[in-house]
Design a binder for these strands. Structure first.
Lengths: 171, 171
DNA sequence: CAATAATATGCTGTACAACAGACTATATTG
DNA sequence: CAATATAGTCTGTTGTACAGCATATTATTG
């Protein structure tokens, strides 16, 4: 199993002294790389990256209302309103009254929306694997798995998931 | 070496089917978790997270001018201008004329700035390790190393995003 | 059942950050 | 010296997050 070799190499290269804040720099770099590839991949999708994410969540997670949808993607409700407006205009989703609660709207994908999603999912998957193409395949698998685990851990630890309550001004 | 066990477990848990775009969701979750902890950690630092990053880069990387500094942190020059204004007002850095090029300004930390940075670096380091506290220590090490590798790879592959070849000698 | 609170969504206004473009001062090059 | 490039600053525009209020519906309570 040469995975161990990869791990050893990875752990080794970590032996270089790490600055506080360097993890953030690396995360930012990775996220920027991801976003730029993602943006290219969803070129033409209504509302771009956000549109894809919303459509994907609607199709694959079937949230009961807008609030649940927004909470999952950490999108503010007022932002989700005009995001959905745009997707409805594009004909990929519909707002229908929620069956159990007439205050709420259930978001369902149209057939067009499903077809569009399938089409773009291939491109997004390609973009994701291209992002990881610079490191070994087994390392990439490990990385993706560990990021997933950490994300789950953070997700579990965040009760309200309201991430921007600390917008402080300078003195 | 039980590191191999960790890797196996990680790779295993990946066997669950992954949606296109899920990597992005996970990355977003991790980055949000990081940022919220980071923001708490730099509470009181002038200009918050950005201020810390700028001060850290000034002290540890000694960029020759504002352009190099901004390129490293991927901060727009116009944004860096008022960010530095704020840091200068706070007395943590100074703008001095660059010795080799009188068009440019060299940013140097004051003694106060260095002291402040040291103080906050402890808090940031604690925040970073707290972020990773939910997963095994060896896994965290692997994750940090792999993110670093991937970040380096993306950094190398990006021609326009950070044109700081003048100072490309990082670990 | 009436009254009140809570919830889901929509709408409006504000604040801040990103970005493009103009401008000044200096460098470099032919 | 003239022409062009670069470093930094300043200004104006745009996009987006968020708070606050409004409306419709549901839940709760007396």
């Amino acid at each position: 199993m040469d995975a161990m070799t990869d791990l050893s190499r990875a752990t080794e290269s970590r032996s270089a002294p790490t600055l506080p804040g360097e993890l953030g720099w690396n995360l930012g770099m990775v996220l920027r790389g991801y976003q730029s590839r993602f943006e290219d991949a969803v070129q033409g999708m209504p509302s771009g990256v956000r549109g894809f994410q919303v459509l994907s969540a609607v199709v694959h997670r079937d949230p009961p209302n807008q609030q649940a949808l927004g909470a999952h993607l950490v999108i503010d409700r007022t932002v989700l309103t005009y995001l959905l407006d745009s997707l409805v205009r594009a004909g990929v989703v519909e707002r229908i009254p929620a069956p159990t609660d007439r205050r709420a709207r259930k978001i369902v994908a149209t057939d067009e929306g499903r077809a569009l999603l399938e089409q773009y999912e291939e491109r997004v998957a390609a973009a994701e694997s291209e992002l990881l193409s610079g490191i070994d395949e087994s390392e990439a698998g490990t990385l993706v798995a560990l990021i997933g685990r950490l994300a789950m851990d953070i997700h579990r630890a965040q009760p309200g998931a309201s991430p921007c309550e600390a917008m402080d001004h300078l003195p």
